[in-house]
Amino acid sequence: MSYLVLVQNGIAQGLIIGLAALSITLVFGIARFPNAAAGDMLTFGGYAGLFAFSATHSLLATGLAAIAATALLSLLMYYAVFRRLAGRSAVSLLVASIGVAFMIRAVLGVSFGHGQLVYEIELTRPYIVGGVRVSPLDLKLALIAFVTLAAAFGVLYMTSIGRQMRAVADNSDLARVSGIRPQRVMASLWLLAGALTAIAGVMLGMKTIVAPEIGWEILLPAFAAAIFGGIGSPIGAVAAGLILGVAQELSTPLVGFTYKIAVSFAVMCAVLVFRPRGLFGKAEAVR
């Protein structure tokens, strides 16, 4: 089997994982805890997008609806739960986020059942480029991912609130002293984190199916990517998502299809033990 094909498959999966990892790394860097609800926020985005897609059949409307709904959910989570836990240990927040994750899944399960739903997009035959088959859907999804990433990086690096967010991630005490209002930064953070998971959810839903468990299943690879990339490093998260996606697929001729899932965990464990700050992380992030 051509390695080029495996790389292509790895990129397609890596983009989804990278988007989710970006959301996780931002929360981890700024709110300082691993957000286990990211997976179920992603599922929520998948459902929100699905209903918009069925109604309009427009990609733009689907994306916007998913972003709006999930960002709102994300903000609600912040105000109802995580803000009350400010100053507690990362573990308290982690446990609370697991609780939130279960609640989101329960609401989706009660409302829409456990059966699968699908984005009814017309399936098309592939383009053949230099002997490699490229599916138009994958190209479209990659485009969505790049637009989303460009927008996210635009917010982070070219707006004032983005600079404030990164300042808090770098050094929250210093940021506070220099007059950054943490409330505003946090609200923006959760809106952005929600928007990113929403797009990841729409992409995953379009590629596969929509069901209450889909996000939970992708949470561990996304965590792995966030850690591998270096906590708090947006570029690292996306790069790590892509690297893990490709590594996982490229490993299949060696380890087979069952163990390929273990590859990303093994990479994660190895990175943590030998280079705990990840690919792009700063040394101070360790311990």
Partner: peptide, 12 residues
């Protein structure tokens, strides 16, 4: 679904 939801609520 409710079972898992109540577990979540209890944790929070």
């Amino acid at each position: 679904s409710i079972r898992i939801g109540v577990v979540g609520l209890a944790l929070v």
